[in-house]
Design a binder for these strands. Structure first.
Lengths: 151, 151
DNA sequence: TCGTTATGGTTTTGAAATGAAACCAGTTGT
DNA sequence: ACAACTGGTTTCATTTCAAAACCATAACGA
């Protein structure tokens, strides 16, 4: 049912990641999950997406171990979708997308939602790619090398 | 031609980012660009995707200011697609997707391509979300607040 | 307890996107 | 001059999307 080979070779971890995630809707579902959304109906209202598409996305995300289904936390007979450890591993990616959007798609002073350090209510640092010794690296300072065992 | 309103409200920067990027193919194109790929044919061979789809994605990415078209660097009459400043701003996102894939989709010792600090040939640090004071933050330590002017 | 509404989907169906292949114009190499 | 390469566009069959209708179960209210 779930199509597994859109990005064929997938010797590249980026491709495997995108394959598992599926599409942009899935990333918005994951974003909502980080904001505390857990129920089917909540996701649907928050995202305004068709129920059949949401259903398919959630099914795919569960199949890929990004979400898991748990009994509803309010004691009702319904179920909830919560991020697994693997799913929570996408936090930096979501933050990266958020910061990129903030930096390039909003006019100075234009309103948008904001992600804060809960403890101090301060904005987050911009994500930085760093070398082992702590140097901040740009694309030019990095080098992709072909497949190696033991990476 | 380019559909602009897939994720409707887009008061959220994550949604605006995904809207601009378009889909997973686009992220793989951007990944390839970080690896130095510049020509249409190179992208097409690297990704194994249909030429009409590649054409449409590149057109969209150029329209969103993520790529720009420049004269070929080898002096021929052809053109090349290179990342703009905005496009290069996605570096952390690509690295995030790569690290997530490395962490969750490969068996111990399974071969995959690797991104290194070019200067020392060392692996990169894992991306971390940090507060202004430098603390590493998980999803639970962050709080999304609704639209504010002056973010 | 019975009817009503909310929840969490699935099915149906027309519209849109995808992708393989054929085609084509301009460029480069011989 | 001719052949091959580059960088696409067009065509068309297939797949996916998305809106709406539908439906079963659960919760709620009187």
């Amino acid at each position: 049912m779930v199509k597994l080979t859109r990005f064929e070779t997938a010797e590249c971890p980026v491709a495997r990641s995108l394959e598992a995630i599926g599409d942009g809707w899935a990333l918005l579902i994951i974003r909502d999950a980080f904001d505390g959304i857990r129920r089917f109906g909540e996701f649907q209202r928050s995202l305004g997406m068709a129920k059949n598409i949401l259903s398919a996305r959630l099914r795919n995300l569960v199949a890929h171990g990004i979400f898991e289904i748990v009994p509803a936390s309010d004691g009702s007979a319904y179920q909830e979708y919560v991020l697994t450890e693997k799913g929570r591993g996408l936090f930096a990616v979501i933050i990266g997308l958020r910061q990129w959007g903030e930096g390039f798609f909003y006019a100075e002073g234009e309103a948008h939602s904001l992600m804060l350090d809960r403890e101090h209510g301060q904005a987050l640092q911009p994500l930085q790619v760093r070398a082992a010794d702590g140097r901040v690296l740009g694309p030019q300072e990095c080098l992709r090398v072909a497949a190696q065992s033991g990476g």
